[in-house]
Design a protein around this nucleic acid. Structure first.
Lengths: 130, 130, 130, 130
DNA sequence: GTGGTCTAGACCACA
DNA sequence: GTGGTCTAGACCACT
């Protein structure tokens, strides 16, 4: 379920954040569904509970989940919006990645197909307006 | 010219690496053009020369510049190629960014146009065959 | 264990890199085995931690080790491959060394036996198919 | 004749030393033949005379040429011998290079053929006892 | 004057 | 306690 790469130089908690974001975006985790309790998940992944805690806090900060004290963490039903700062950062990142891929020899065709695949896949979970 | 964010969690030397990669990819820095001397740039940015040195060394490792001791650092004329590992990492990153942009409400049209702009712009500097 | 030559013109960090490469190639350091922590090794060798850090970073760049922040540096289990540039450099170096040995009077027999020994020894650690 | 790589990180004077050693070993430069005068060579290569001077001094130090004050530098007719220190260093280097080539996937066959080619080529110039 | 190396010492992030 | 970053400042090699 969670394929953590302990060898990776990206911190564990960040891998968790990314993974959960994927699950939420793709619709595997439904709106208002509860995330695994911190201790449970920590136990299953054999990581420090603090690490999971930190991941959940970050998800909350980014607007993907909300927390109910004493209850747990839950998937926020509506996609976070009106986050111009984050959007700008992502736009910037998109430009950076594309231009570097381009520079390293990948052609427009390949880049486009990756993007289309990505969008197509995510459509299954969260249908969105286009 | 170089807008460093000293508060950012991404290291200064990495910000420098990213910025220089943009400048090289976009063709603002021409092949074999000299980069600012380590001490000079360090002075202008009010960072330690070691930090700039580290950035230049990283650029060298990634194949974007070459260094001639006693002379300076220069833009490598040919783009690095045959770097499957780096390509994979970038592909992965592309997927992540696209899916998150999608989730935050950006539609396919907008994403596509960003990519096309990016590819079009980069063509001015480093023409590439497709 | 580590015989550093502080008078040598080859930098300390590079001597460390070479030594570790030998240890990894010969199989003395097993896959996923941890390297000595930066500070510890620095202490034992009475060099600055930054110097060891630099060596480890270089080994990482060359694909011999991986680093997990907060955990340590570890031997990468799979040998780096697809590095045509490095292979060419080594081929060139091999030619240079052989021709100079030849000139200084060493005959074919001796050179061959060194090579066979070397290949035989390395087989013990990292078995390879031919 | 002299293909200097000003981009290389190996110093110019060292490239000169290596190149002259090749020429002497391969017999292109005959015993007692005069090397190009410092200023002439410097002019042709558009490098600083000091750089050529330094290369010649190094060649002298390594026993490949001798200098006649006021006359110039000449190829030493007999190969330098009884240099156990240098021999050991080269032996060591040979082992290092071979084991790394081996580790990077080159097989015994390829390595052997490189060595045989090298020895065969150098035979034309300086016939030696085997 | 250029890059390269090294030291000493500090602070932060992560587990 | 681990690696990672950064500063300040010194010294060397090369041109």
């Amino acid at each position: 379920m969670f394929e953590l790469d302990f060898r990776s130089r990206t911190p564990i908690y960040e891998q968790l954040v990314d993974r959960f974001k994927e699950l939420i975006i793709s619709g595997v985790l439904k709106p208002d569904e509860q995330l695994p309790p911190v201790r449970v998940l920590a136990g299953e992944l054999t990581v420090n509970p603090n690490t999971v805690q930190k991941a959940y806090r970050e998800l909350e900060h980014q607007g993907f989940v909300y927390s109910v004290p004493g209850k747990g963490h839950f998937v926020r039903p509506t996609a976070p919006s009106d986050q111009p700062a984050r959007l700008n950062r992502l736009r910037q990142e998109l430009r950076r990645v594309v231009s570097e891929l381009r520079y390293l020899g990948m052609n427009y065709q390949e880049i486009s197909s990756i993007i289309e695949d990505q969008i197509f896949d995510s459509k299954g979970g969260h249908p969105q307006d286009d």
